[in-house]
Amino acid sequence: MSKTVPILIASIVGFIMIVANFSPPLLPVRQIAEDWFTIVATIAMMLGGANLCLHHLKKISDREAGWGFSTVTLLSFFITIAVGLLKVGAVPESEQQLKFAWSGPFQQEGSGFWWIYQYLFSPIVSTMFALLAFYVASAAFRAFRAKNVEAILLLLTALIVLVGQTRDREITSLFLPPPVEGALPYFPIADLTEFIRKTFVTAGQRAIMIGIALGVVATSLRILLGLDRSYLGGDE
């Protein structure tokens, strides 16, 4: 029963979504299913939060390696939630809102949550991303070596694309004007970059996308027909 009901719900809703896509009169039914998706997704988000807490609390109680980081994670999690829910520093924006406690928006400029976003979250994630430049440069020097034919091809392609991404490609293309769209590329690197993108990259990407789409169709059908039950968890 605990497995049959979720399978039935998944199958019925899945088939409704498929049929409604081709049948406009069924649009209201699809909209109801979409509303329910949002509700379920929100509950899943809460479950995710609870799971995060349990995972890190266990790490702390077992004194596993890196348990200090788990403490920081949990502290940050709870402080952010509390600041957002209690609307710390948020003030009512209109006369109508004055009547109600905690009536200002939690992301209001100047509020605690806004401060966390602007002065903690934003610099931290920007720094993490910026660090990539340093590690990629180090990896390019140490690991990007022409050891065999495949590596040489990869190396040459990377060099062409790197040059092509900045205006330096005009130096390598002898300042020749770019060709019109659809014309065959000639030697300069600016056009080789475009040639690589339009032919090899796009063709490869399309092949991947079509492959994924076919895989998704097959997997979805297996789920809708109840043949694949792995999404329910457990051993199935």
Partner: peptide, 24 residues
């Protein structure tokens, strides 16, 4: 920002060439 990207790319190309020169 394009200036920074241009010089970073130049450095990367230089490092790749230098790394492969050492390898050879």
């Amino acid at each position: 920002r394009g200036g920074a990207q241009r010089w970073a790319h130049r450095l990367m190309i230089g490092l790749i060439v230098l790394g492969n020169g050492i390898h050879l």
